[in-house]
Amino acid sequence: MNLSTLSASLAPLKLRSCLIQQQGKLIFEHYRDQQTASELAKINSCTKSILSALICIAMDQGLLPGPAAPLRDFFPQIRRDADPRKQDITLEQLLTMSAGFRWKEFGGANSFPKMTRTPHWVNYVLEQPLADEPGTRMEYNSGISQLLSSILVQATGQSTASYAEQVLFGPLGIRDYDWESDPQGIHTGGFGLKLRPVDLLNFGQLYLQQGVWKDSQIISGRWTARSVQPVMHTEPPRHGGYGWHWWTDALSCSSAAGESSLVDYYYARGYAGQFIYVVPELQLVTVLTQDNKRGKNNPPADVFRDYIVPLLGSI
């Protein structure tokens, strides 16, 4: 992988960080300034993929039942809802954003900003009507992630952050973090976590290694594999697929014979340009962090596809 021109190419983009690791070796490291490497910064919706890992670990430990477990097991009040379909929404449908709730993440009558202004986020989400039959369509919904964080608290008997320290952050060497919570003290499942770029890199490497870290199985290979498989098609304008709070897609690479082929990858994605890309076939993990808040008329560059993928070379 020829990275000799990458630093110059990235300079105008004003990234906070760009880390590339291949076959377990850090091969490229770029920071906006000296402080960026060590300072905590919001990872926004990459928090969702961290939460997915915690759900998988809780299932490994027998604290949570399997992905077919229904919503009524965690929120008994849903049995009284006028729509009986709600109580049969499964854990997997929450993880794949296909629960069917009427929701517009930003804007509209039922939205993420509106949820954050209510006194009880979990109840707000549960009270939303269904727009789709559960399991039939993905609708991006950070409220669903808050339900999952609440479920994790119920299952483990401790806060989401405390459980993360015990089963994920501790093993990965993550000592410093900051994590927002809702009015009931439940840590935000869909956003609000602050980590360092290297923490994101290690998290991606954990998944590349199928849940193994330093000879310890942190997450079972069964759930790491299943969680990053596409289950739902993403809603426009996004493309690719969606697994258990992970995005999935494919990129075009050249073979040794010069033929083009598609290589699958999966990634965590956060607002303003936070990404963790994992490409198993290339043994590659890439982390990008940014402060990009440009609007629709001035979209941000796709740094991974436009600047890094062309340098991957033949496979």
Rank of each mutant, 00 (worst) to 15 (best):
L311D: 00
F304S: 03
P183V: 04
D302S: 10
K14L: 11
M232W: 06
A131T: 00
E39Y: 07
Y163Q: 00
T47N: 03
A11H: 13
W103F: 15
R117F: 05
R85C: 08
L172K: 08
K25P: 00
V198K: 09
E281M: 09
A161M: 07
L6E: 01
W247C: 10
Q35S: 15
T234Q: 13
G313F: 10
S9I: 08
Q274V: 10
V212E: 08
P134L: 07
V231C: 07
W121H: 15
L40Y: 09
F75Y: 14
F75V: 01
L251F: 09
D291Y: 06
Q23I: 01
A131Y: 01
Q23R: 15
E29H: 05
P300A: 14
D249Y: 02
F112R: 10
I43T: 12
R102S: 13
P299R: 08
S260N: 13
T289G: 05
D132H: 15
A225C: 11
K86A: 04
K14T: 04
S220F: 11
L15G: 07
Q283L: 00
R102H: 11
G270H: 12
P299I: 03
S216G: 00
V279F: 09
L288N: 05
D60V: 13
P300E: 05
A58C: 10
E39C: 10
P300R: 11
P129A: 00
L40P: 09
N202Q: 11
A37G: 11
S252Y: 01
P76V: 04
E165I: 00
L312N: 04
K296Y: 09
Y31V: 04
G189W: 06
Y265V: 00
F169S: 04
L288G: 08
Q274K: 15
C46E: 11
L19I: 09
S255R: 15
H245N: 10
M232E: 12
V279P: 07
A58I: 09
M232L: 07
K296W: 14
S4W: 00
K25H: 14
L40G: 02
L63I: 03
C56E: 07
C46Q: 14
I151R: 01
L63N: 07
Y307I: 01
E39A: 12
I20W: 02
Q210D: 10
S220P: 05
Y307V: 03
A82K: 12
L288T: 05
I50C: 04
K114S: 14
G143R: 04
P65L: 01
I50T: 10
Q158E: 11
Q166P: 03
G185Y: 03
K214H: 15
V303P: 11
A161K: 09
L64N: 02
D83K: 05
Y277K: 02
E127T: 10
